[in-house]
Design a protein around this nucleic acid. Structure first.
Lengths: 210, 210
DNA sequence: AGGCTAATGACAGCCACTGACAATTGACAA
DNA sequence: TTGTCAATTGTCAGTGGCTGTCATTAGCCT
């Protein structure tokens, strides 16, 4: 790697860290791009050469996680039922995700930024849009696994929509609660996915849930 | 109603219509607030006194529809299973929705704007955030119907997430296709909701779908 | 060493949005 | 009807995100 390349990498990292640190402490809206650039001692223009916008800095790490989930789903054996494949892929990819993150920024910082994302309207909106794109991708993968046409058969998109919905509900609960550990999230996700069947049963009065 | 009130109403209507017309023809990003204000011959500042931002103008009509759905769910008899109640409420509220819209703007204009919302990243993001808020509200209603605590029992949020997911999938398909009639949308929604059961079944090879 | 190219900074400008203040216009009572 | 009060609006100035342009700097390669 060149000196040039290394320098670029360092600038990018510094900008990312400074941005995340500022978002996490001061808040997203309260942080200006000038603040971030000043913290790294580069011009505002340089920031925009590395990130398309403030938003992109906030979502840099979450994007890594998404990529990993997609690949985990792709790697699932074709025999599994769709919902089962999705479930296992997510739970499994969280084992490796923290290491991936730690290579870039402290996981703890990521978690604090994640909370900011969930509690900042503009960021939450962007997050949901990304999630929708992810779902579309997953639907295609599922359809292919099952040898179906996504645009002709509604079922791939429906399972994925259901699955995505459950994930989002747990994300929200998790980020709002106190237990920010990965294990807590795993637990929550597993519990909620287990409730999918019962939730669809007609009669909810039979048997309460945790 | 005062002359003053009437004048305000007229200005608001004119701004809304001008905004929607411009969004639908020129596109959202390509329309500046100055354009909208100029079309109505008021100052830019006045626009911001009626709408919190460009976005709010785009979502003014869709918000009406959302309100109506929420009320339709509230009006459902308590005996129905949750998913059934949601299904009936949505299908039913679409009967009345076009009249409500027509009081404000031509339905055809609304449809064109809706397509713009679905195809403009910034607007789609905002739309999904609103949808998430709506789902939270519906989950609370469902929980109350069933005499449950939303924060203790996951099932209300899960059904609603599933339902919301299906709705969003159909919205997208509908807005991307050619048949922009309400009847087409009803049909699509009913079909997709009917596929929820089959989609969750383990084995998709038994019996193809339309 | 010196020319080439990529990265950066400085500057100007667009657009969404906000606060402050002055001018206008309808409402209402004397 | 007129004068006063309050609401509506326009103007102006300013902030922040973001982009294009151009000159300058700094690493690369012969």
């Amino acid at each position: 790697m060149n000196l040039r390349e290394r320098k670029k990498q360092r600038t990018r990292d510094a900008l990312l860290r400074a941005a995340m640190e500022l978002f996490a402490t001061r808040g997203y809206e309260e942080t200006t791009v000038d603040d971030i650039a000043a913290a790294v001692d580069v011009s505002q223009r340089t920031f925009f050469r590395y990130f398309a916008g403030k938003e992109e800095a906030a979502f840099y790490v979450p994007r890594l996680a998404e990529t990993q989930v997609v690949e985990a789903v792709r790697a699932r054996p074709p025999g599994e039922a769709p919902l089962e494949a999705l479930r296992r892929a997510v739970l499994e990819s969280w084992d490796t995700i923290s290491e991936t993150i730690e290579e870039i920024v402290p996981v703890e910082l990521h978690m604090r930024v994640y909370r900011v994302i969930e509690s900042t309207p503009a960021l939450l909106a962007a997050h949901l849009r990304r999630a929708a794109e992810l779902e579309e991708e997953l639907a295609r993968i599922i359809a292919e696994r099952e040898g179906l046409d996504v645009d002709a058969d509604p079922r791939p998109r429906i399972v994925v929509a259901l699955f995505g919905g459950v994930i989002r509900v747990t994300e929200r609960l998790w980020s709002a609660g106190d237990d920010l550990s990965l294990e807590g999230m795993r637990q929550l996700t597993a519990t909620y996915l287990d409730q999918v069947g019962p939730a669809l049963a007609g009669n909810w009065r039979t048997g309460q849930s945790p």
